[in-house]
Computed example of a mutant assay.
Amino acid sequence: MDATFWAFIGLIIFLGIIAYVKVPAMIAGSLDKRADQIRNELEEAKKLREEAQQLLAEYQRKRKEAESEAENILTAAEKEAAVLREEAKARTEDYVSRRTAMAEQKIRQAEADAINEVRASAVDLAIAAAERLIGDKVDSKASGELFKSSLGELKTRLN
């Protein structure tokens, strides 16, 4: 009986003890448990991936809605700006036309005032010239008679 035989016997006893203690079943159970754990992790990863895809789709939809809303707001702002621009243009034109009309009215009034002033000056000059002519040609007796006749004429017109 050499050492090889005893090593063989020791190996068989060792394998028997391992079989008696059910080490292969424990190893198989441990492997099964590990396989179940890996399977659960894969399923969880798959669920997380699906949730991530749903979130991505939702955020893309929200982004498109936000872009659409921004475009609508921009369009509305452009329309409002155009309306405001037209209103400002109309108000400016109205203001300019009113100011022009006021300026024309002031010019007409100034012309009328100038004409009246020239007429008044002409009347004053005519009166002064008539006084000088009458004063040179009429003496005091003729002026007294003229005054009396004018006074009589005035009385008849007032009554």
Rank of each mutant, 00 (worst) to 15 (best):
T4W: 15
E87D: 07
S140C: 02
D32H: 02
E65R: 13
L11S: 14
K79M: 04
E44A: 06
E43W: 04
G135A: 08
K141I: 02
A19W: 12
E80M: 06
A130P: 00
I115F: 10
R91H: 06
Q105T: 14
V118G: 08
A76R: 15
R108D: 07
L48C: 02
K47Y: 03
K79V: 01
I73W: 02
K64R: 10
A112F: 01
T4C: 05
L146D: 03
A45Y: 03
G16L: 02
D32S: 11
E86S: 02
L56F: 10
D124A: 13
A88Y: 04
G135F: 03
T156N: 09
P24I: 00
V138L: 15
E104M: 13
L15A: 15
L74D: 13
E131V: 07
L158Y: 03
Q105H: 15
A25K: 14
N116A: 10
Q109D: 14
T4G: 07
A77F: 02
F5I: 08
V96Y: 08
I73Y: 11
A66M: 14
K22T: 02
L151D: 06
A110M: 03
V138D: 07
E44W: 01
A45C: 06
Y95C: 04
R85V: 00
A70R: 15
A70M: 05
G152P: 00
Q105G: 11
E67D: 14
N72E: 13
I127G: 04
I107D: 08
S97F: 05
R132K: 13
G135T: 02
Q60H: 07
F147V: 08
E50D: 12
E44G: 06
L15V: 12
G29L: 00
A129H: 02
L146T: 13
G144R: 09
F147A: 11
I115Y: 12
L15K: 10
I17W: 09
Q109H: 15
I12L: 08
L48K: 04
L74K: 10
L125P: 01
A122P: 03
G152R: 11
K64Y: 14
E80P: 00
A66H: 07
R157V: 00
D36P: 00
K148A: 05
N72T: 05
L146H: 11
G152L: 06
T100K: 08
E44Q: 11
L55K: 14
W6M: 09
I38S: 11
K33V: 01
R98C: 00
E71T: 04
K137C: 07
R49W: 09
V123L: 04
G10A: 04
R98D: 02
A57W: 07
A3E: 14
S68G: 12
S150I: 10
A45L: 06
M1W: 09
A101T: 13
E51S: 12
S30R: 03
A52D: 07
A76W: 05
L55T: 09
D36K: 10
A76C: 10
V123R: 12
E93Q: 06
A103R: 13
K62D: 12
T156E: 15
A81Q: 14
A52W: 08
S143I: 10
E104I: 08
